[in-house]
Amino acid sequence: MKKTFFAVLIALLAAGCSPAASTESADGVKRVTIQIDGAAVPYYAPLYAAKEQGFFSKAGLDVSFTYAAGSDIVKNVAAGNVDFGFPNGDSVITAYGKGVKTRVVHTTYQQGIGALLSTGQANINSPADLKGKNVAVTDLGSPNYIQLQAMLKQSGLSLEDVKVTTIGTGAIVDALKNGQVDAIVFSRLRYYALKSAGVDVRQILSDEFLPSFGNVVVTSPEKVKDDPATVKAFVTALDQGLDFVTKDPAGAVSMAVDKYAPTFNGQQEAVTTIVKDVFVKTLWHSPEGFGHADENRWQQAIEAQVGYKLIDASFKAGELVVKPDALG
């Protein structure tokens, strides 16, 4: 028994978690943790603003941020090791289909952030122009690889019509710049960095061919059932953070860089342009308000994963996505 306990403890610590999730202090403030995909970047400004502007504290929450890979985040949330997660929506669907159950309580990014990026020299104006081209993805199990297949399929092509190269995250953009490949399927945010570097870059958004989602807030089914007030408090404060960044992108980016992402110092102006042109206009936008879950789009994303054999069987989007009124 003792040996088992220490094995579990070591596994939790290795994942960057503590054995206990939320705790409530004597003054009634609830301490919660959200594990965020990747590393601290200024594009997570709404979360940082919710903390720095006091929206979380006014909601009775003391929120801590940690970071991990998307697949690890989903596992940690499902196990109750952390209260909330902020992974890519695609990884949430894949995990759910494989029995790792979480609930989406806030569809923060209404669209996926994948895109086909190419240089003008490659003369790729539509996916049909990919025939015979060398296209890079980071991994054959990545969402971007599925997005490439969807683009090809809707253009009457298949993987046999292109040469697919795998290149790591740190080198894939340089491979495009240096002409090693004709195109890459990667983050649409890199379009702006390439453009500002003087590259003649073109982009085709993956979301036009395969509905998907970027980062979303997830929690465990148990937390939705047993502590809906905390979940509602968290997403309400996040909505206030999103509203703050929408109204003052430059100020929010400056705050995020100063306090959380200092490696972006000197890039504030470029990041602010991306926040205004991509996040405010498209990714965060929904006619029904911040965080709204379009169940039809979620269902399409689920069916796509079945079709491309990422998961074995379909399930109802309503099992995964929590409606706001379910939180009281």
Rank of each mutant, 00 (worst) to 15 (best):
A136P: 07
V135C: 06
G170A: 14
L176V: 05
D161E: 08
A115C: 11
D182C: 04
D174K: 13
G170R: 13
K177N: 11
G156S: 02
N134Q: 15
G156C: 01
G120M: 06
G120F: 00
T107N: 09
A183G: 08
T102G: 01
I124Y: 08
I167N: 03
M151R: 00
L157V: 04
A136V: 12
T119Y: 01
K163I: 11
D174H: 09
T165D: 06
N144M: 14
P127D: 13
I113W: 04
N123W: 08
Q147T: 06
Q111M: 13
E160P: 01
T102Q: 06
G156I: 02
V135T: 09
K133L: 07
T138D: 07
Y145A: 11
Y145Q: 05
V135Y: 04
S158F: 05
G132Q: 09
G170D: 14
G156D: 01
Q180M: 14
Q154N: 07
A128W: 09
Q180T: 13
Q154Y: 05
G112V: 01
H106T: 11
V164G: 06
L159Q: 07
V181I: 07
E160H: 09
K133A: 06
G141D: 12
E160I: 03
Y109C: 07
V105W: 02
L159D: 04
Q154G: 01
S126E: 15
D182H: 02
Q147G: 11
A175D: 05
L152A: 01
G141R: 05
T166S: 14
L140D: 12
T119K: 07
G114S: 13
L117V: 11
A122P: 01
V162D: 06
G141N: 15
A128F: 04
V173F: 06
K163M: 09
T108Q: 12
A183F: 06
N123H: 14
S118Q: 00
E160R: 10
A150E: 01
H106D: 13
I172S: 01
H106G: 05
K163N: 15
K131W: 09
Q180R: 12
A171I: 05
V181P: 05
A115V: 04
N178F: 10
V162C: 10
T138R: 09
N144P: 09
L117C: 08
K163G: 06
